[in-house]
Design a protein around this nucleic acid. Structure first.
Length: 661
DNA sequence: CTAGGGTTAG
């Protein structure tokens, strides 16, 4: 065969990468080396792209090693590509910094890549420092700063969010003044930065400025505007923008923006009503695979099986069932609605399963605490040419708390194999999950050692896991240890306050408990209000504790009083330790009896026919007394009650719960 | 070569 030159190899190489055929790209590269052709500066960037998209840090580092050997690392474009790779996939920003520092000649691309790296690792101030120090900036540099502000949208602190919005607006003004190229990236970046600031005034300012500087209205910009308006409390303006949507051919983007904005804010019922408006109007023609996946996600979050099922058949009729995302969302929806068998069935019938499908299936089993089944699924994955990711590991590690026999050995093996054989660095979440497993099986000593030697700072999550595991294996020493750290780490966090308050309450130290709650109120914190809901007549009926707003609340309270007596006759004893207020015993009992789960379940009992299962969803974990009450209720009424709380499903049948806790 | 836009898995 004729010997090809390096440039023809490179052409095929980048072609494969463009097509997303990363494995083949690496294979071809192997062939290239076998045939004695040395890689040049143009071979390495497609390989780095392949490593970035299809593999991970290991492959990228291998390409890096190669460039070191061939002396290509000092090449400007190779160095820039390496910085770009490490900025996204490095262990830490130092990987990118190292390359940057070794480069003899740097240009604006090198500097921008470094800046991007700092942003990716959440080091905003360092990134801004680079921005100030760099000798030259172009519009990509500005855009990198802007988009950096919008990362980690969730859990952003208020002060930081505000700052990002202001800085974003400042940068945007400067870009306009300096005559830099303004693209969709710029405008959506500024809008997103202001959206996370959730500041009405700021959003109006930006809105005006965007119009004034004549940025053309594109679907992306208008979608970002709608999103920003909703997040800044201007839903009227959002709907106005929606009605004036000019990009007819892309109306589905506008619909989805509305839906996603409500979904991400936890306003599920609002998202549903928005969707139904679309579903029942002429705009039904604009429903596409993205909208369907969003809606299925909302149905899952709500546990709204009826609508979820309708969406499943709609997807089948409209031909969207073959879309990978839709199929995956359907599995997840059924899993979260308690229809595990249907989820499994959909999974099995899927023509093509990707990692997300597997993760969704595992999640469905995890919600039902089926640890053994998940370990079986894991052994199937191991035999397939599918690469588990950090989410898969998080799920499988967590499943070890719910196996029929002690699976800490298996769990330890999984945890260690993450970095040793799969090249995935365990995150704080993985440590927290492992700690929970160890605690659940009573291996507190190992849990403590693990926390002691973890390379990451043990976050609230880790201590919270240790504390939670003490509910399965009571251990006062560990409880105290976890509490101590939680208080030190996040004294201002509402949930920590509630925890401390609860701990005090349990030891009957009412004074301290009440003063904690008072302090919490002073600091303007609220705990997430407990809420439960159930379904009837294709609509959602939700309840807060002691809620009397439901039109049938008279019947609900009367029914509940009768049921309580029946249950007490059968041996149910209200456990008022779950009432965390310093009130007289009879008042405590009153508080306890009208917790939201009890109200929603009672409504379900009133409305559900013979042989039908009652389904209740609660936004946080239900308390021990509600749990015990549901057990008695299932025996007293002979009905099956399914409750999903933040810990998973509880199936109450004949006086027993499936959770074995 | 450096910047991202509506979706699904925690």
């Amino acid at each position: 065969m004729e010997r090809r030159d390096v440039s023809s190899w490179n052409t095929v190489l980048s072609g494969l990468v463009e097509l997303g055929r990363y494995d083949e790209a690496f294979e071809l590269f192997g062939d290239m080396r076998d045939s004695g052709v040395a890689a040049d500066r143009f071979s390495l960037s497609p390989l780095l792209a392949a490593a970035a998209e299809g593999f991970g840090l290991q492959e990228g580092a291998a390409v890096h090693a190669l460039s070191l050997k061939s002396g290509l690392e000092m090449d400007l474009s190779v160095g820039n590509a390496l910085i770009g790779f490490y900025a996204e996939h490095g262990d830490s920003v130092e990987d990118a910094v190292d390359v940057f520092q070794r480069m003899p000649v740097k240009d604006v691309v090198s500097w921008t890549g470094l800046l991007h790296g700092y942003m990716e690792f959440g080091l905003v101030d360092m990134a801004l420092d680079v921005f100030d120090r760099m000798p030259e900036r172009n519009f990509v540099t500005y855009n990198a700063v802007l988009t950096g502000f919008c990362q980690n949208k969730e859990g952003v602190r208020v002060t930081f969010a505000r700052k990002s919005g202001l800085r974003g607006l400042g940068l945007f003004r400067q870009m306009v003044e300096d005559g830099l190229e303004i693209s969709d990236v710029t405008v959506t970046g500024v809008l997103n930065a202001c959206a996370i600031a959730a500041d009405r005034k700021m959003s109006e300012q930006v809105h005006t400025f965007v119009i004034k500087c004549g940025c053309s209205s594109t679907p992306w910009i208008d979608a970002a505007l709608i999103d920003m308006c909703i997040k800044c409390g201007r839903s009227g303006d959002a709907h106005l923008l929606f009605e004036q949507w000019r990009h007819e051919e892309s109306l589905h983007i506008a619909w989805n923006s509305l839906l996603v904005a409500s979904f991400k804010d936890g306003e599920y019922e609002k998202a549903i009503s928005t969707f139904l408006k679309m579903f029942r109007s002429n705009d039904v023609q604009f429903i596409d695979e993205f909208i369907l996946t969003t809606v299925l996600g909302v149905c899952g979050a709500l546990g709204f099986a009826e609508l979820g099922k309708q969406m499943h058949s709609f997807a089948a009729k409209s031909g969207f069932l073959s879309a990978q995302g839709v199929g995956n969302a359907i599995i997840s929806m059924y899993g979260k609605c308690g229809a595990l068998e249907t989820a499994v069935d959909v999974f099995k019938r899927m023509p093509c399963r990707d990692l997300v499908s597997w993760n969704a299936l595992i999640t469905s089993h995890l919600l039902h605490r089926q640890g053994d089944e998940i370990l079986e699924l894991w052994s199937q994955i191991e035999r397939l040419p599918i690469k588990p990711d950090s989410i898969t590991f998080l799920l499988v590690i967590s499943s070890c708390s719910y196996t029929s026999s002690n699976s800490t050995d298996k769990c330890r093996e999984l945890f260690l194999s993450m970095s040793s054989t799969h090249g995935i660095k365990p995150s704080v979440e993985h440590y927290a999950a492992f700690v929970y497993v160890l605690g659940c099986w009573g291996h507190f000593e190992e849990a403590e050692q693990l926390i002691g030697k973890m390379p990451l700072k043990p976050s609230v999550l880790v201590w919270r896991s240790l504390l939670d595991s003490c509910n399965r294996r009571p251990n006062m020493t560990m409880r105290r240890l976890a509490m101590k750290h939680l208080l030190a780490l996040e004294p201002q966090d509402p949930s920590t306050y509630v925890l401390t308050s609860n701990l005090y309450s349990e030891s009957a130290r009412w004074q301290s408990s009440e003063s904690t709650r008072l302090k919490m109120r002073e600091m303007g914190m609220r705990k997430i209000p407990a809420k439960s809901w159930t379904f009837h007549g294709n609509s959602i009926h939700s309840f807060f504790a002691r809620d009397r707003s439901h039109p049938q609340s008279k019947d609900i309270y009367a029914g509940l009083d009768v049921l309580i007596l029946d249950c007490m006759k059968a041996g149910y004893e209200p456990d008022t330790t779950f009432v965390l207020h310093d009130v007289e015993e009879y008042q405590k009992r009153h508080f306890l009896m009208y917790h939201s789960v009890k109200l929603a379940a009672m409504y379900g009992l009133l409305m559900t026919g013979h042989g039908e299962t009652i389904r209740v969803v609660k936004n946080i974990r239900m308390c021990g007394d509600c749990h015990s009450f549901m057990e008695y209720t299932s025996a007293a009424t002979g009905k099956e009650i399914l409750v999903r709380d933040s810990g998973g499903f509880h199936i109450f049948r004949g006086g027993k719960c499936s959770c074995r806790e």
